[in-house]
Design a protein around this nucleic acid. Sequence first.
DNA 1: CTGTTAGCGCGTTCAG
DNA 2: CTGAACGCGCTAACAG
Lengths: 343, 343
Amino acid sequence: MVRPVTAGTRGASIRDVARAAGVSISTVSRVVNGTAPVAPATRERVEAAIEALGYRPSAIARQLASRSSGTVGLLVPHLSDPACAMVAEGVEAAARARKLSVILCQTGSCGEAEHLVRLAELRVAGVVVVASEPDGEEPRDGCYRTLAGEVPLVLAGTGAGAVRVDEREAGYLAAGHLLELGHEKLAFLGGSAGSTVVRRRLEGIERALREAGMEYGSTLHLPGGSGFEDGRAAFGRLARREDRPTGLVCVSDLLAAGVLRAAAEMDLGVPEDLSVVGIDDVSLSRCFSPPLTTVARPLRELGRLAVEELVALMAGSEPGTCELKPELVVRGSTGPPDGREEG
Amino acid sequence: MVRPVTAGTRGASIRDVARAAGVSISTVSRVVNGTAPVAPATRERVEAAIEALGYRPSAIARQLASRSSGTVGLLVPHLSDPACAMVAEGVEAAARARKLSVILCQTGSCGEAEHLVRLAELRVAGVVVVASEPDGEEPRDGCYRTLAGEVPLVLAGTGAGAVRVDEREAGYLAAGHLLELGHEKLAFLGGSAGSTVVRRRLEGIERALREAGMEYGSTLHLPGGSGFEDGRAAFGRLARREDRPTGLVCVSDLLAAGVLRAAAEMDLGVPEDLSVVGIDDVSLSRCFSPPLTTVARPLRELGRLAVEELVALMAGSEPGTCELKPELVVRGSTGPPDGREEG
DNA sequence: CTGTTAGCGCGTTCAG
DNA sequence: CTGAACGCGCTAACAG
């Protein structure tokens, strides 16, 4: 068995290759990087030497000499949150396509400050910050303070981010769908009342209401978290009301799952007695019973675009903004309010 | 607005600090690293200079000079797979605790070879490879060939990995639970027939059968994938059989979700007509209807231990192995075969 | 087309 | 306790 070498016995360096090929190190550098033309014969000798010695250029030395690390930082709350994981997936894929390496940092269980310091020392070319969905608000002063003016940074996913989802549209789509089915009383469940994302979703809902000629300006909002238990709790509170809405828009799919469960526990049929629509379209929402109708947020794409924006920033562009359109995905958790179409 | 500097106007270097403090760079190095005693007075001057100049040591230069990058590579199939994401979460957390940075690489949609090359050039101190659950088999020759003898590498999650779950126990727990409830006909759904993980789970199931005094040696196994649709398909095939088993062990929670759906579509009640147990306990399995009984694999812990093993390897230890115990999590998808305890 | 010469920013001896 | 000097592995002008 080959013992892994920890250090010292490191592989061949550019100098070894140069010596073996009988050329100077610059020539080796040139054939490796294609920086300048090299005579076919010389190139072959060099390539042979590289092959023979198993030479692998040191990215570290490269970074030092060229003062540019081909790496970016990725700050994400928790990978265990499916929505975050999705964005991260998009970021990694896009970065790879751009030949950038990504350094993964989870900020959920620690101050992001320490990560930021490390990233700064690593001289990352840029940073993508994924906001904790759907709460994350405010331009993350912490980030800006530490890195602003040092490194391009793009905030993704939050209402204030450079790359975000059109949250008004998300609310509009969800409410529009419910209204079209005939629901007249709607409610929005979960999310912190003050957050930009929630505010925009409510605006979208009210626009739908207005367009449908319904009363508006006071959509019922039961604020709270965005998890499964928050959904159960929210529905518990809702169910007690005399004028229980029949069309529910949830701040996230996870919360919607909690609502589904609570409804089942109270023997309320979905969608016969109650229609529920989530927001996100995480991969498991089709696994719920009934499969969840939801407004899909293009999370992977969001990650991809965050990298594109970052690359633009690194190239010197002025900061821009882009807003992705969400899409309605109709599955089984929504139907007419009286269950008239029940099979 | 502060314009991000792309390069050139880089922050202060150790030399700038030395000059500002009126000392030599070695002294600065010493106060920064605590490498050797420094006179209190000098130290203060240096620290003041550091603060004043906003000096941030270059990890890159440090890595080059000390020939050791404090980074590890993390190879994971897809972050969108909740199980992988969970392992990744553990890896990042453990690495952070060890002051290691992790470079994220998704191998699902590309050859891992290119990632490995990049990681080798980056001179990572080690690599954690997360097997694609639950298929990933074989010691990943690709990895070994590229990195063996160059960098410590630990395989996590697969049957052959250095850090893995006791899959026999997983099968045993699932089957034991079903048997205890009174089921007599069991089946195992999904997973490739040849994989070590699946083989071990089947062994565990048969041990449970044996201990219960049942016939064994021929547990029905319907191989296939491990996704939601695979679950629907598998159950479709199963339902056609005259002697349909009433106790189903699924290769993954996702597949179990598919089984749940298929059963619902055929108007079979779970757990009255059919008991289903998954494996993994991804966070959303409690959101299914009924909530899924499952064998939890300590995935986050798996990631953590993979890093510990890696650190040991980096320190020169001989390769070791550790096997984590899974745990049964009883929820609502299992019950007596005749539904006698139905509420 | 090719070799020489400077650094990149820092750790690390080795003399004071 | 401190400073000078060398080198990590490579890129980037410059001269040929």
